[in-house]
């Protein structure tokens, strides 16, 4: 297994987002593995707070000099907060993807889709196989 961090208390999507649940609010970011693969992140962009997203919808985009990735929400709901500080300092995503690099908070209408995501060990195995 590679040397990336995968906190045990989060859920993970195949598109490399992590999801943290607090009541009906889901915080979303990208994983350490993803930021390492992207390399120097130079730009992020999110949809606006107040926008609704469906499960599987894109809530934003992240760019390095050689790649651009869409960001997907596994849950439906309303975006209640975006981490706009990242727009000025996208390098935070490389430095602290699970902390200061959180991206959006969604008030989820249904938490059920999270059960279908991977746990930490599942995600590690998934990354190892790529």
């Amino acid at each position: 297994m590679g040397d990336w961090k995968t906190p045990a208390n989060l859920r993970y999507a195949e598109t490399d987002e992590w999801f943290a649940v607090d009541g009906d609010v889901v915080t979303i970011g990208i994983t350490d593995y993803a930021q390492d693969q992207l390399n120097d992140i130079v730009y992020v962009e999110f949809r606006d707070a107040g926008d609704d997203v469906d499960a599987g919808d894109s809530f934003g985009e992240v760019e390095s000099v050689k790649a651009a990735s869409e960001l997907y929400s596994a849950v439906a709901g309303e975006i209640i907060e975006v981490n706009s500080a990242l727009e000025d300092s996208p390098e935070t995503l490389n430095a602290d993807p699970f902390g200061a690099g959180w991206m959006v908070k969604v008030r989820a209408s249904d938490l059920a889709p999270l059960a279908g995501l991977m746990d930490a060990s599942g995600y590690d195995a998934y990354c190892d196989s790529r």
Binding site: E63, S64, V65, K66, A67, A68, E70
Partner: peptide
């Protein structure tokens, strides 16, 4: 050349 990820060779169908 900059802002390359906008372009077809990187972003392809997107």
């Amino acid at each position: 050349m900059t802002l390359r990820p906008r372009e077809q060779d990187i972003k392809r169908e997107r």
